[in-house]
Design a protein around this nucleic acid. Sequence first.
DNA 1: GCGAACTAACTAACCGTTTGATTAGTTACA
DNA 2: TGTAACTAATCAAACGGTTAGTTAGTTCGC
Lengths: 188, 188
Amino acid sequence: MGSRDAEATRRRLLKAAREEFAAYGIAGGRVERIAAAAQSNKAQIYHYFGSKDGLFDAVFDAMCRETVDAVPIDAENLPEYAGRLFDSYERRPWVQRIATWYRLERAGTGDLLSVVLASNEAKVQAVADAQARGVLPAHFPADVLLGLVIHLSGFWSSNVPEFDAVVAGHSTAARRQVVVDAVAALLS
Amino acid sequence: MGSRDAEATRRRLLKAAREEFAAYGIAGGRVERIAAAAQSNKAQIYHYFGSKDGLFDAVFDAMCRETVDAVPIDAENLPEYAGRLFDSYERRPWVQRIATWYRLERAGTGDLLSVVLASNEAKVQAVADAQARGVLPAHFPADVLLGLVIHLSGFWSSNVPEFDAVVAGHSTAARRQVVVDAVAALLS
DNA sequence: GCGAACTAACTAACCGTTTGATTAGTTACA
DNA sequence: TGTAACTAATCAAACGGTTAGTTAGTTCGC
């Protein structure tokens, strides 16, 4: 128990790495801090994950799998789908930041994550089907519509501080409602 | 001319820094590369800008001033305003990336840029006025509405590569139209 | 006691920042 | 006008701290 549990150590490292990378990104994140926060050792990181980049990949991969599982698409009710995405960001605040770091620091390097690609394709298909059935309007192509919905769901974590200062003071519930309403308006 | 023009050197450094920071961010950007790309010297950076962070601030500040000047708000026609923002991102592709690095790496450190704050406040006021006149619908508060419009204008530069791969193949004109249409839908 | 888990100490490279000196342009004065 | 004194611009080299990655040895469960 505790002191010699490889799986637990791996988990502690992953969790600490998630915090560190969410806060500082890949270039800014410090392996030493991650090891210390996980009450472990730098060498363990290289033993379990091979490299700093490998550690970030593991964090990102795990995060993507969780997110894909956590919020299945409901093409019949995209406003509520966006609301649930919003909820998932509230529950796991690192998701948006890690995804953004990934986009900025990892674009073009290495392969795309097939689990995410497949999930996106399936979601586009679900939207396209709903459009074909007439449940969803067709004034946007399915891929674009899905993209807009996902994009809007991240509205509140995308603003520069100078804008946040101007929009301050909305409750979580109100912020969620904005996302839901905005997606609903998109479908009108 | 050329070899001893302080202002020109400053400009070359700023331009090189803009490219470097847009590509790699603050932590990832390399002072050495910036100096080399500007055909100058590391020490010049410290002479003109004090520090790496000071250099980034100068880049960000200049960029904000340009953007604020380049795209004045037109509260009577928000879809077209969003379209013009989209155009400005196409023309100056580094804007969105620098703004994102700023948000991720600089949030909470130092003061907010008053030029941006003032511009945002004025824009919110313009939207609120238009709402009061009945030119704009009032189902979103003015600050939120403006935020959504700006957020939507950046739609195409905000997606993770795994999503870009799925939405590939839309022309610039089509992408612009999506932004305009999405904002129009928001106002319905 | 064997192998897996763990760790402190180490290293080699990197990188932001500074130094100290050189060069080019400008002013002042005879 | 000629030149000495001054200022601003430039740069190569070095410094000191940091950091990703490694090693070689120790501890512990089975």
